[in-house]
Design a binder for these strands. Structure first.
Lengths: 83, 83
DNA sequence: TCACATTTGTACGTATGTATC
DNA sequence: AGATACATACGTACAAATGTG
């Protein structure tokens, strides 16, 4: 799933993959993204790498992280707790 | 130098300290910031922590990192190599 | 061309703290 | 009290880019 030969670092590949899932509606707004532990198992990378990927999406405003809860796909201007 | 008791995490304290040096002119535009290794010795924190601090300043557009060179205080719209 | 040192970039593993359920 | 989950921090390792000799 992760191409470790190419020039694109894993954390960006994962960010792209997750962004695609969000854009395609596979993970709809307000829904939670798989936890870092689940993503760790899925992509076979360290949590720090996943956190970097999440950080990218966070900077893009696509997701919001809620401590103790998870990572949520943003709706528009509402927080995940409102759903 | 770093207060590990208070609520402000070290990487933010360092970001604040570096931002202050830039704002005060202690490190003028176009100049290089001490390398991560030097900062590591100065602040007594891990490089990962320093990276987070630098990341904050980078997001604020205050500095630019150049692989193999260093971290530079941005001028306005010019690159460090033009100095 | 080549080797080397320096510096940032990326990645992994681990541990602790904090918040939520 | 316990499980889950993100935030922060440390240590380590290797890769990539740059400059020098």
């Amino acid at each position: 799933m992760i191409d470790r030969e190419g020039p694109v670092p894993p954390y960006r590949q994962i960010a792209n993959a997750l962004r695609e899932r969000i854009a395609s509606g596979a993970i709809p707004p307000g829904r939670r993204i798989p936890s870092l532990i689940e993503l760790e198992a899925e992509f076979g990378v360290a949590r720090d790498t996943l956190r970097k990927a999440v950080r990218v999406l966070k900077d893009e405003g696509l997701v919001e992280t809620v401590t103790g809860m998870g990572i949520y796909v943003v709706q528009r201007e509402s927080s995940p707790s409102e759903s």
